[in-house]
Nucleic acid binder design. Structure first.
Length: 483
RNA sequence: GGGUUGGUAGCUCAAUGGUAGAGCAGCGCCCUUUUAAGGCGUUGGUUGUGGGUUCGAGUCCCACCCGACCCA
């Protein structure tokens, strides 16, 4: 903590004075009738209740006082009269600050302005706060402070509370969706000897006792597939992945990923599953399939329509639709056209990568309503089956909506010989990047299966209208602030 | 990593290169149904950090720290 300013000094003095008077400034257990919101919801004239919360406003009227106490669930008014408080209670009240936690017991009553309130008969201090809270009307505005001191954001900004309440409701719904469909939630290693299952730079760490380097996982995929080998038929994992890459509006070094694998299914069944999942979550948590994003003034800036059935279209057709004649050009023609389109095309890019740039810019960024992009070129993904009719493309989808990739799904590659070839190709000769133990598992036989992954933070951005991933992660990555 | 932009009281914000201010919060009084309560009075600043230009810098210049937005 920095040098106490005068406001903190005043509060420290009050703390000392309370302690000296035997009025414990940090309280004890205080049984309550419920959270503040629950007490308010169960309000009944004359009922005796006990409630506790943080003081977020006080209004003095001579010898009577009003306090607002708050927690995550809402706000409730407390009415105090010096006469009813007694000497000790009055002393506590005199030394009270906005931000302190208090406990009250008393009767429910409605003031003449119609505000449900508790008329306090007992009033105790539960925790003394040593710092002033953000301004009561504007809340905490400073973006950096909102992320660095998220607790202050949660105390003072209703919108932040609502976004995170929604986040955790969404995650709960996802779990119950999979459980109802017979999927088992499992846990696989976060620390892996080979960081497989995706193309990304991992974080490195070191195991001292074993003298070995380990990587934080970039995906759980290769372990979940081992479970299919082991006889599980429907599994999912909903937890953190780590990627040692840039931080941006859409990227946090650690992020929440859902992956699910379904034996004997394929990518089309997975697409249906994903559509069912997202629609159910939207209906239960967002109240419908039309998701409106608004700006700070409440104007609607974007509407995402999740109405079914969702569009399904082939990768090649979407590129051709966005840029007619694209595939009629030759390799250098495509490269030149991409430069004309204002794309940053470096000389070392392969032809399929040039097309991928066009896809990202002209298709992905402009796709707001959900679209399953299917049959992507096989160079992009090493872990999926090729299409039986066209070996240049894969039996996969990439779900795009809100201008972002949200969820890939595959008919999972289960031929160990082909899988080895594809991984060797992808590794660019770096043998240590190949998970030999995964390949060995595949050699024992993995059933044909459908698999899917979903970036949960991006899904939550979509469903809450957040324009930055930092708005949906409680404690986003920030550089430490120098003293 | 590059470009643009920001950092002023605990918080929200002002301040042509010319005495750093307001509201909230705090402190002191008044007020027994208020709710952004109200009334009177009042404290609080190394203007992110370090240099420079200038008679004079919150303001202009340079470097650095921490953000935001855009690009890679």
């Amino acid at each position: 903590m920095s040098e106490p300013n005068t406001l903190t000094a005043v509060r420290l003095a009050k703390r000392a004075e309370l302690a000296a008077a035997g009025l414990r400034p940090y309280g004890a257990a205080f049984p309550v009738s419920g959270d503040v919101g629950e007490v308010r919801a169960s309000f009944a004239e004359g009922r005796k209740v006990a409630a506790a919360g943080r003081v977020t406003a006080r209004r003095d009227m001579g010898k009577s006082h009003f306090l607002d106490i708050s927690d995550h669930s809402g706000r409730l008014q407390v009415y105090l009269q010096d006469k009813a408080l007694g000497e000790e209670g009055v002393r506590i009240y005199e030394l009270l600050d906005i931000g302190d936690f208090v406990g009250v017991e008393g009767e429910c009553f409605t003031t003449k302005t119609g505000e449900p309130s508790i008329k306090a008969e007992k009033f105790v201090l539960l925790s003394k706060s040593l710092h002033p809270l953000p301004e009561k009307w504007h809340g905490l505005q400073d973006v950096e402070a909102r992320h660095r001191q998220r607790y202050l954001d949660l105390i003072s900004n209703e919108h932040a509370r609502a976004v995170f309440a929604k986040r955790f409701a969404i995650i709960r719904e996802i779990r119950s969706f999979f459980e109802e469909r017979g999927f088992l939630e499992v846990e696989t290693p976060m620390m892996q000897a080979v960081a497989g299952g995706a193309a990304a730079t991992p974080f490195e760490t070191h195991h001292n006792a074993l003298g070995m380097d380990l990587f934080l996982r970039i995906a759980p995929e290769l372990y979940l597939k081992r479970l299919l080998v082991g006889g599980f038929t429907k599994v999912f994992e909903l937890n953190r992945n780590f990627r040692n890459e840039g931080v941006s509006r859409r990227h946090n070094p650690e992020f929440t990923m859902l992956e699910a694998y379904w034996a004997y299914a394929d990518f089309e069944m997975m697409a249906q599953l994903v559509e069912d999942l997202v629609c159910r979550v939207a209906e239960r948590v967002c109240g419908g399939l039309k998701i409106e994003h608004t700006d700070a003034e409440g104007r609607v800036t974007r509407v995402i329509n999740l109405s079914r059935p969702w569009r399904r279209a082939r990768y090649r057709d979407l590129v051709e639709e966005a840029e007619p004649g694209w595939f009629a050009r030759d390799v250098s023609g495509r490269r030149n056209r991409a430069v004309e389109l204002g794309l940053d095309i470096s000389h070392c890019l392969e032809d399929y990568e040039v097309t991928q740039h066009v896809f990202e810019k002209l298709v992905e960024e402009k796709t707001i309503d959900p679209c399953f992009v299917t049959h992507c070129p096989k160079e992009l993904i090493p872990l999926a089956k090729t299409n039986p009719e066209d070996p240049a493309v894969l039996d996969v989808f990439e779900l795009v909506m809100n201008g972002q990739e949200i969820a890939p799904g595959y008919s999972e590659l289960n031929d160990p010989v082909v899988q080895r070839e594809r991984l060797v190709e992808q590794s660019g000769g770096e043998q240590h990047k190949i998970d030999e133990e995964f390949l060995q598992a595949l050699e024992y036989g993995m059933p044909p299966a459908g698999g899917m992954g979903m970036g949960i933070d991006r899904l939550i951005m979509l469903l809450t209208g957040a324009d930055s991933i930092r708005e949906v992660i409680l404690f986003p990555h920030l550089k430490p602030k120098a003293e």
